[in-house]
């Protein structure tokens, strides 16, 4: 089962490598990983999208929590939450027909064309993992995809619940 783990940790050199090392050392999966500073510059926030059964997930959260740099860990998928990913897709847009089609599909998905070249369009789209995957697959039916860059998922709990130091 797919899970999203949120980690609040010290913004220190080596902290990220400990997290990544832990996942590979213990044969936990990483589907995507996002990391950046928070509003409080001494803290970083990591979102990891992973999968595994309940027993593995329990080990993942406990093992991450055990790292000295880690302040808090939460499994976002346990309760209502919002998840977002951003994708940049570069596609071939050779003729009017494909150009119109790419624009139409982008509109439906509420994407933006952010760069236009002689024969290419670059589309930007945000959404959850499902939306982005289906966008890419639909685009690929209409034209040739040259490059896809996905940011990986970030997530936050709905309502009052917050992950803070």
């Amino acid at each position: 089962m797919r899970r999203i783990i949120s980690i609040l940790l010290e913004n220190e050199p080596g902290a990220l490598s400990r997290i990544v090392g832990l996942f590979s050392q213990r044969a936990f999966n990483i589907e995507s990983l996002c990391v950046a500073e928070t509003d409080e510059p001494s803290l970083s926030r990591i979102t990891i999208s992973t999968f595994g059964d309940d027993k593995i997930l329990e080990q993942i959260t406990k093992q991450v929590n055990k790292l000295v740099d880690v302040i808090k860990v939460a499994d976002l998928t346990e309760r209502p939450h919002i998840e977002r990913e951003i994708v940049l897709v570069k596609v071939l847009a050779m003729n009017n027909k494909t150009r119109t089609e790419v624009m139409r599909i982008s509109d439906i998905f509420r994407g933006d064309i952010v760069d236009v070249g002689k024969q290419i369009y670059t589309v930007q789209l945000t959404g959850d993992e499902d939306k982005i995957s289906s966008f890419i697959s639909i685009l690929s039916n209409e034209t040739e995809i040259i490059e896809v860059v996905r940011s990986g998922t970030v997530g936050i709990a709905r309502g009052e619940k917050a992950l803070r130091a």
Binding site: P13, G14, S17, R18, G21, Q25, V68
Partner: peptide, 14 residues
């Protein structure tokens, strides 16, 4: 050495 020993330490400092 911090990298080499990372999976076998409780913690390390640079």
């Amino acid at each position: 050495i911090v990298g080499c020993s990372r999976p076998i330490v409780k913690h390390s400092f640079n």
